[in-house]
């Protein structure tokens, strides 16, 4: 394929992919979905497990749609992909910046998900295969997603500043929570870290500034936001008027095992890079 017709046909595929690898304002949909609370027991799609599945499936779908779109656009579609890369970079920065003030757990995850996945477009424009980085970035959010759900179950809401000092009252939970936040903000050895490296190494050949500016700034802002999240939940003086229930050994093993699996997936990504 290729030519003007090819590009016209590719455009809807890219736009649809922009729903999965969210581009602002198409990203509003996925953020609404993540923030949607179940109104009744039968509202299965609003359950945390279902949402987690959606968070993992959307990048796969997005990568597939991009593959089709790229095939349709052919060799002449470079400028179209560059435009989407620019759009993706701006979306990533917009959501990373907004993430700084997010205090609610679900809003936090939604905005980080958008900021991270939008970065995949930066790589796509420069021939970086989108599947592994997209999966790596999405999967890195899952431990935090489930732990935030654990907070919601314990305290009715997952929000920073409401119940600080969990490290002193729920040490097991806090330890896992710290690791989960670090994994989410792309600290080594999380798959997100290697995904960021993959996008940087792959994208820089085509356009240094378009690749490095959004990647670097978004990564920096994620770190800031991650520290804010830790400061409001893990550190600080614990409240005396709450009941604290720490994780039992089985839960620790389950979450810890999941994170080890993620680290192994990270190593797979490294071998993909090298």
């Amino acid at each position: 394929m290729g030519g003007l017709l090819g590009m016209m046909l590719a455009l809807p595929f890219f736009v649809l992919a922009g729903l999965c690898l969210p581009l602002f304002p198409l990203s509003i949909g996925i953020n609404r979905f993540i923030q949607h609370l179940p109104k009744h027991a039968a509202d299965r799609l609003a359950q945390p497990q279902a949402k987690a599945l959606v968070l993992l499936v959307l990048p796969l779908l997005g990568a597939m749609l991009i593959g089709v779109g790229s095939w349709l656009a052919g060799d002449g579609g470079g400028w179209l992909l560059n435009a989407f890369a620019f759009w993706g970079g701006l979306t990533s920065l917009l959501y990373a910046f907004r993430l700084l003030s997010a205090r609610d757990g679900q809003i936090w995850v939604g905005q980080l998900y958008t900021s991270a996945l939008a970065l995949v477009w930066v790589g796509v424009a420069h021939d970086v295969p989108p599947l592994l980085p997209a999966l790596g970035l999405a999967a890195s959010l899952l431990p935090l997603w489930f732990l935030l759900d654990g907070l919601t179950q314990r305290f009715g809401i997952a929000r920073t500043g409401l119940y600080p000092g969990l490290a002193l009252r729920m040490p097991r939970f806090a330890a896992l929570f710290i690791v989960a936040v670090l994994v989410a903000v792309a600290v080594p050895f999380s798959p997100a870290f290697f995904a960021v490296a993959d996008l940087a190494f792959g994208g820089i050949g085509a356009n240094e500034l378009l690749t490095l500016v959004p990647l670097s700034l978004a990564w920096l802002l994620w770190t800031w936001a991650g520290i804010n999240l830790l400061a409001g939940i893990v550190f600080g003086e614990p409240r005396a008027d709450l009941d604290y229930v720490d994780l039992d050994r089985r839960d620790v093993l389950m979450h810890g095992g999941g994170m080890v699996l993620l680290a192994l997936f990270g190593l797979v990504l490294v071998e993909g890079i090298l």
């Binding site: 490296a197 940087a200 190494f201 820089i204 050949g205 990647l215 670097s216 990564w219 920096l220």
Partner: peptide, 13 residues
């Protein structure tokens, strides 16, 4: 960390 990442990406490329 960011300039180091950028330097490494440039070297790799």
């Amino acid at each position: 960390d960011l300039p180091l990442l950028a330097a490494i990406a440039l070297i790799y490329h």
